[in-house]
Simulated assay, not measured.
Amino acid sequence: RLYWEGIKQFGFGERTGIELPGEENGIVHDYKTWPASTIGALAIGQSISVTPLQLLRAVCTIANGGYLVSPTIIKEVKLGEGQDPGHGEREDDRIISEETALSVRDMMLAVVEDGTGKNAQIEDINVCGKTGTAEKANQNGFGYSEGRNITSFIGFAPYEDPEIAIIIVVDEPTGPERTVWGGTVAAPVFKEIMEYSLERIKVLK
């Protein structure tokens, strides 16, 4: 139950509330229905379905020191005096301690510096990230399809004072056997977009 509560605390299984149509809840089964293998499966990203925005929201919790953010596409609302814009300030909830967030941030830094995310390295910037390579479920609902993957890279920068978080998802990339991974396919795309973004906000010159 504690595991399930932790998953739900990060917002998985429900919409983020962003002002865009078509957002999905994802799938998080009630812990009362879990077979014995579920905890092990969840640890490698199976038996659960999440959206890229939900995943990015969770990683932003690591970047900002433990607060679950409420994503929005609205920067500012201005109306005449006495008018209610109908879009008040959203409150963010602390869901993990700052110490825990920093520990995970350190791990994500190590992924890029010494692990599978080296292709996301940016000169003079400490980047935090995590690679992902997921098998796609069979359309009949049983098992996973061999050779059909989703590769991803998610991360933020700079490590010291995060400004931007990005997720890259590539559906069914192709290439030589054992070369199509999150670190080889999605990480280079992340690097290119992050470099451009940091230059735009004057963090990277």
Rank of each mutant, 00 (worst) to 15 (best):
V111I: 06
H87P: 04
Q83I: 12
E146L: 03
V77I: 07
S97F: 06
F153H: 02
A120Y: 11
E81Q: 08
N138S: 13
S103K: 12
V104D: 15
S145Q: 11
N140T: 01
E172M: 01
I73Q: 06
I74G: 03
E113C: 00
G129T: 04
I167T: 08
D171H: 00
R178T: 15
A137S: 07
T100M: 13
F142P: 01
G117Y: 07
G82T: 03
E81N: 07
N119D: 09
T116R: 02
I154T: 08
T116D: 13
G86W: 12
G141P: 01
R90M: 14
E98T: 14
N149L: 06
I167F: 08
H87Q: 08
E135S: 07
S145I: 00
D171F: 00
L109I: 07
K78S: 11
G80W: 10
S152Y: 04
I96V: 15
A165S: 13
F156A: 00
Y144W: 09
N138D: 15
N126E: 15
E91W: 08
V127Q: 04
T151G: 00
R105Q: 15
Y159D: 03
T133Y: 12
K75H: 10
A110Q: 15
G147K: 05
C128P: 08
V104L: 14
N140R: 05
G86V: 11
T116A: 05
A110G: 04
G175Q: 09
T179Y: 10
F153G: 03
A110M: 13
A101H: 10
A137N: 09
G86N: 14
D106F: 07
T174D: 13
P85D: 15
R178W: 13
I164H: 05
E177W: 04
T100I: 04
G117Q: 11
T100N: 14
R148Q: 04
A101K: 09
M108V: 02
K136M: 03
G86C: 07
I95A: 02
E98R: 11
I95D: 14
F142C: 00
G129M: 08
G88E: 15
L109E: 15
E89S: 12
S103P: 01
A157K: 02
